[in-house]
């Protein structure tokens, strides 16, 4: 299988603080990889280093065989990114934001098609700020898909969504996965991770304390549910009992 994202020996520190202390990972084509960890564990920094918006101190990173810093322009024709703090100007309409995103790429997807696919067709002329949380989140996934990417990065996919909205986002992503899209996501919700991810990596203090499939994670722990296994790995279960 072809490796889409390849990271080895990634290190990043600010002063004496080691934010990331040797991370290796590889995501295969068509795989959904979930990066898990508590806030402050180094998830965001890991993603930023992989994307090249932050410079790693050490390590090799390649996406689709390209360096995100040296071949940025070529690489990001094929990579879609959805940011955690989603960023759009005030008073922009849905179609304008889609057009503005689309014009940056050589072969953008038809955004109207994507809006239809994600159930936002009737919101085309609405202001982004007037969309509900779930609609916004779906729009930001659409923006990440506009490049017609081979791989997408989705940061905290469904934070702030209600159950129904989360399910509809999951459904759409599964469809995309079936079409061969590689997905790298972060999430705080274990039900979501179980539903979507082929493999997960749990990060703590800048290192992987587990990397493998969801069922492997459960087997390795003394528990039967991913959520408990996750807390066991991260050592947060004790705090819960207090």
């Amino acid at each position: 299988m072809q490796s889409i994202i390849q990271v080895s020996g990634l290190r990043k520190s600010y002063g004496n603080l080691h934010i990331i202390d040797g991370i290796d990972l590889s995501v295969l084509k068509g795989e959904v990889f979930g990066l898990l960890g508590a806030n402050g564990a180094g998830k965001s920094t890991t993603i930023e280093c992989i994307l090249g918006t932050r410079k790693a101190d050490e390590g090799n990173i390649s996406i689709l065989g390209m360096s995100p810093q040296k071949e940025r322009k070529k690489l990001f024709e094929q990579v879609g990114v959805q940011f955690q703090e989603t960023s759009y100007p005030d008073k922009i309409r849905v179609d304008e934001l889609c057009q503005e995103t689309g014009c940056l790429y050589k072969n953008p997807a038809n955004y109207k098609e994507l809006l239809r696919q994600f159930g936002l067709a009737e919101k085309e002329k609405s202001f982004v700020s007037e969309l509900s949380g779930g609609q916004k989140q779906r729009l930001f996934i659409i923006l990440a898909l506009i490049p017609n990417p081979q791989v997408v990065f989705l940061d905290e996919l469904t934070t702030g969504l209600d159950t129904k909205a989360r399910r509809s986002v999951w459904k759409s992503l599964k469809e995309l996965k079936e079409k061969g899209l590689t997905i790298f996501l972060t999430s705080h919700f274990m039900d979501e991770v179980e539903e979507l991810c082929d493999r997960i990596g749990i990060i703590k203090d800048g290192q992987f304390i587990f990397c493998g499939t969801v069922s492997e994670a459960i087997v390795e722990s003394p528990y039967e549910k991913l959520e408990e296994a996750y807390l066991w790995f991260t050592g947060e279960e004790v705090a819960d009992n207090e």
Partner: peptide
Amino acid sequence: KRFQVTPS
């Protein structure tokens, strides 16, 4: 920052 992860 979003523009930094685009070809532009």
